[in-house]
């Protein structure tokens, strides 16, 4: 049954068995081709397997602008070095100086990858001001901030 198959998916992704999880997900999608949870799980499974184009294909085929998985799409574009498309997505999802944290991280990472270190530094500086020193992510942000600063020298 679908319920049993979703239980299998949950267990398999907890075991990091993403290829097996994809097989269960395909069984679900054979009877329910539009199941958004199953499609979302497929996207994340492909990303965990490093198959970013497969993930992107599902996103483009099955998710409209309305229910789009923005973090997932942006992440795939980043890993595939599709920077023009990523910039487009980032622009569309920015209101004023604000966008979601995940997209700001991707913007900073893309800037670093494309050697626009000043932009990277600027974003990490702002993220550091907003982050709590006790958060796990604080030291990661600081590491990236320092990497971008070092790259400028």
């Amino acid at each position: 049954t679908i319920t049993q198959l979703f239980k299998d998916v949950e267990r398999l992704v907890n075991q990091e068995e993403y290829t097996k999880a994809l097989r269960s997900l395909d069984k679900i999608l054979q009877s329910n081709p539009e199941d958004k949870d199953a499609l979302h799980c497929k996207v994340v499974s492909y990303i965990r397997l490093g198959k970013y184009q497969n993930a992107l294909d599902i996103l483009h085929k099955n998710f409209s602008d309305f229910d789009k998985l923005k973090s997932e799409e942006a992440y795939c574009l980043y890993r595939l070095n599709k920077f023009d498309e990523l910039l487009n997505l980032l622009r569309k999802n920015k209101s004023g100086n604000n966008s979601e944290l995940n997209l700001r991280h991707l913007e900073a990472q893309m800037a670093y990858k494309t050697e626009d270190y000043n932009t990277s530094i600027e974003i990490y500086y702002a993220l550091l001001q907003e982050a709590n020193k006790n958060d796990d992510v604080y030291n990661d942000i600081l590491t990236n901030f320092n990497a971008a600063k070092a790259a400028l020298l």
């Binding site: 979302h40 799980c41 994340v44 973090s71 992440y75 991280h105 990661d140 320092n146």
Partner: peptide, 21 residues
């Protein structure tokens, strides 16, 4: 090359609804 973390990866995750399906 200095250490640089892929922080954005942490924002990619399975749907929270998975356990309720």
């Amino acid at each position: 090359k200095p250490l640089f973390f892929d922080i954005a990866f942490n924002y990619v995750d399975f749907p929270s609804t998975l356990s309720q399906r």
